[in-house]
Nucleic acid binder design. Structure first.
Length: 111
DNA sequence: AGTCTGACTAGTA
DNA sequence: CTACTAGCCAGAC
């Protein structure tokens, strides 16, 4: 009885907020870490709401499973997300994270 | 109640 | 690489 969906969103913010600088993660990884592997879309939705629910969340560190900046259009400017990542020593090429596998940060692995 | 959309993912062709 | 389908869940109409 304590499966509040609200908890899901709060956990997403918590996990994203704990992403170390210079690292990135995926929606599926967060969703799987929270116990809902198929709800990767919810993570994206949580990010969309994060702007209002939890400002300060490094949503630019969250990309899709291929390391593509799918949500770049939600940062006000389509180049803002890439700029933020490049500011953290993360190289972006063609809207994709270079060496994504190396920069990938697994919440279940650190937490 | 239903229907559509969306910052996803896996599978198939 | 693209295009489509199915599953997933929340929100807006």
């Amino acid at each position: 009885m304590e499966s509040d969906k609200q908890n899901f969103f709060e956990r997403v913010y918590e996990v994203v907020h704990q992403i170390p600088r210079g690292r990135v993660t995926t929606y599926g990884a967060i969703a799987a870490f929270l116990g809902s592997k198929g709800s990767s879309r919810l993570v994206g939705w949580a990010m969309n709401q994060s702007h209002n629910a939890c400002p300060g969340i490094p949503a630019h560190r969250v990309v899709n499973r291929l390391g593509i900046l799918t949500g770049k259009h939600h940062f006000g400017s389509p180049s803002m997300m890439q700029q933020l990542l490049e500011n953290e020593n993360i190289r972006i090429e063609n809207d994709r994270v270079v060496d994504f596998r190396k920069k990938f940060w697994d919440p279940a692995r650190t937490l």
